[in-house]
């Protein structure tokens, strides 16, 4: 995000603090991202739509308390969305779902020794099933949402070094278990 964009966004936020209708611009801008983020965590379109609406309602309710903390406004929305999902699964005592697109796995992992086949995908899914939840959350935000570590730390309420450590550990596990080259080292 460029400096100019951040300044524009700030102007919209301060306007929206006075008039909630002005928030519509940010709603249109971030709706898709937040919706897909929620869809990946619920695998249910209706539920994702409902949680998405609730995320924006909560954002509007707390907008007056929002202040810039060195992360983009979208990180704040992700944080609210993440809290909403957690609240939903806590309330319904369900297991958190991670819906992964096959294409994205292929994008993320470059083939090495193993040939890329159905069995490998299944093994990968089995492996991910046993990953600790915090590692999965970090991986999701890093690779599917393209968030940087500072934002991930803010969204998940952890330290930046904690976010980095979780990502590297998860990637190390992936490399060791699958002899795969993950298209990421930064």
């Amino acid at each position: 995000m460029s400096e100019d964009e951040i300044r524009q966004e700030e102007a919209v936020i301060s306007e929206a603090k006075k008039d909630p209708k002005a928030f519509g611009v940010l709603y249109e801008k971030y709706f898709d991202r937040i919706y897909f983020y929620l869809l990946r965590q619920t695998d249910n379109e209706e539920l994702a739509g409902d949680l998405c609406a609730q995320t924006f309602v909560n954002a509007l309710n707390n907008l007056k308390r929002y202040e810039l903390r060195g992360v983009p406004f979208s990180a704040w929305l992700y944080k609210i969305a993440s809290n909403e999902v957690n609240k939903h699964f806590r309330k319904n005592k369900g297991k958190k779902v991670f819906s992964i697109e096959e294409v994205r796995i292929k994008e993320l992992v470059a083939q090495s020794d193993d040939s890329w086949d159905e069995e490998l995908i299944q093994r990968l899914i089995e492996f991910m099933k046993d990953l600790p939840l915090d590692m999965l959350q970090v991986l999701e935000l890093r690779f599917y949402e393209d968030r940087d570590f500072k934002e991930i730390a803010y969204i998940l309420d952890i330290t930046e070094s904690g976010a980095k450590m979780r990502t590297y550990r998860a990637l190390d596990k992936l490399r060791k278990n699958f002899r795969l080259k993950v298209k990421y080292d930064g």
Partner: peptide
């Protein structure tokens, strides 16, 4: 497993 992972084709 601990998590539920679903694959979207």
């Amino acid at each position: 497993g601990r998590n539920e992972i679903r694959l979207r084709r």
